[in-house]
Design a protein around this nucleic acid. Structure first.
Length: 425
RNA sequence: GGAGAGGUGCCGGAGUGGUCGAACGGGCCUGACUCGAAAUCAGGAGUACUCGCAAGGGUACCGUGGGUUCGAAUCCCACCCUCUCCGCCA
């Protein structure tokens, strides 16, 4: 949600961003509605003022007849207020609905276009040359008894799985490795709840309901399974007014992530790439508005450090305007080289870092108290994947596979993993 | 899960129908005193909405949502949360 008043002030800029996103929104309707809500609110407050004045006159002892007519007038004012209140509530609800259709602004340097129009910012590493035909991660994992999708389907359904043997150790090693990198970088580590209230999801910009939702709801509870720790870490600071000196906040959250993947049938669905549950170490940052772009670069730099240490070839892309998602102002994805993907290997997204500017902060009520002006402003929030324990293992398995079917463990991970190879078996 | 207690401003803590946006402490900010500081004294500090070019008005908010009443922090109902005890449990 963009603030309807800043929307009015920056109307043309917002319109241009919507155009670049390919989103059709009637901005003038939102602005007009905001004005109507303000006018209604003013009228309601005037009735409140009258009511207060009237009540002041009832504080002294009154004759019986006087008391009667006083009470009657009071009831009249109360009814009038109630009527207006209902109108205001209704109008505000509608305004919120309208305002929520307006996505965030888009960074001027982000490429314009759809999913395929990303800009490649840089490459790191070179895809390994195999003198044998490399397998995809699923075949590798099955040969080595690392995952059990059949068992997952048996107890929980399609796209759930068991990790087994070294895959379990690999998951834990990657978690711990990533956390160490983040702690070094000044992040405070968290293990967060795996569930959250719908308001929190909504504040972060996830739609907990509706047919296209990515979110599981828990029956008979007002709770959802989280799709990422971004939800819980952001929610942790909902309604906070933060001291300017306390920023930026760097938070690292380890959680399980649950996604329904509604409407994603058939899309790159093999193996661990797109599953209903996985673990993730997520970065979340809260900054002053002027610091968010630098923080965005910092988050990507950390992601790159992690994947360089894991010896995974990758490229960093600047996601195009049409593929950003409503909260994001700019998004950088890291795509790892996955030798087993497609016919002869392909790039696959393994992390994603977004600068959401004040879009989430506004909905969650995360503010900064400015020292100079003593005023409160909405903070900026950012999030980025340190390591997703579904996709990072794909990249490791596929890139570090050997002719004998074993998997080499990158040096940086060996102390965490405990040995230097998985298999062969 | 059962029983009890409680949720008030930055913190502690009054307040059981109008005079309460809220006593009193503490902390914080400004000024006075001081060479400076401490102590002391005098002032000032919440959030949001709304009207206004502004200065400055107005309105709402005492866990949340309803209700009673001319009038609710105060009474009633529901829910959420916290604490203590019991039970259960990793």
């Amino acid at each position: 949600m963009l603030d309807p008043r800043t929307l009015a002030a920056r109307r043309d800029e917002v319109a241009e961003s919507c155009r670049r996103r390919g989103v059709v929104v009637d901005l003038d309707a939102v602005i007009g509605h905001q004005e109507r809500v303000a006018a209604l609110t003013t009228r309601l407050q005037e009735v409140y003022r009258q009511r207060n004045e009237h009540q002041g006159r009832g504080k002294r002892p009154l004759e019986v007849a006087e008391r009667e007519s006083h009470a009657a007038e009071g009831r009249r004012l109360k009814d009038e207020a109630a009527r207006l209140e209902a109108e205001v509530v209704e109008a505000e609800k509608e305004l919120r609905t309208l305002a929520c259709t307006v996505p965030n602004l888009v960074h001027p340097d982000a490429p314009t276009g759809g999913e395929a129009d990303f800009r490649v910012l840089r490459h790191s590493g070179t895809p390994a040359h195999f003198d044998f035909r490399p397998l995809d991660h699923l075949s590798l994992a099955e040969r080595l008894s690392l995952v059990d999708f059949e068992g997952g389907a048996k107890v929980a359904g399609q796209k759930f799985y068991f990790l087994k043997n070294e895959a379990v150790l690999l998951e834990l090693a990657l978690q711990r490795f990533a956390l160490d990198v983040l702690i070094d970088a000044g992040f405070t580590p968290f293990v967060t709840p795996d569930v959250a209230r719908p308001e929190i999801l909504d504040g972060i910009g996830f739609d907990p309901r509706g047919p296209e939702t990515q979110i599981y709801s828990i029956a008979n509870e007002d709770l959802c399974l989280i799709g990422t720790a971004e939800i819980t870490l952001g929610g942790l600071y909902a309604d906070a007014i933060l001291d300017e000196d306390a920023l930026p906040l760097r938070l690292a959250g380890l959680s399980h992530c649950f996604r329904t993947e509604a409407g994603a049938a058939g899309r790159e669905s093999r193996g661990l790439y797109r599953v209903h549950q996985f673990s993730k170490v997520e970065m979340f940052a809260i900054t002053r508005p002027e610091d968010s772009e630098a923080m965005h670069e910092e988050l990507v730099a950390i992601e790159e450090r992690i994947f360089q240490a894991l010896e995974i070839p990758y490229r960093v892309i600047d996601v195009a305007s049409g593929d950003l998602g409503a909260p994001a102002y700019r998004k950088y994805d890291i795509e790892a080289w996955m030798p087993g993907r497609g016919e002869a290997g392909d790039w696959g997204e393994i992390t994603s870092a977004s600068n959401c500017t004040d879009y989430q902060a506004r909905r969650l009520g995360i503010r900064v108290r400015r020292k100079a002006t003593k005023r409160n402003e909405f903070a900026h929030t950012l999030n980025g994947t340190a390591v997703a324990l579904s996709r990072a293992p794909i990249a490791i398995l596929e890139n570090h596979q050997r002719a004998d079917g074993s998997i080499g463990i990158p040096k940086a991970l060996q102390p965490y993993f405990g040995r230097d190879v998985i298999g062969p078996r």
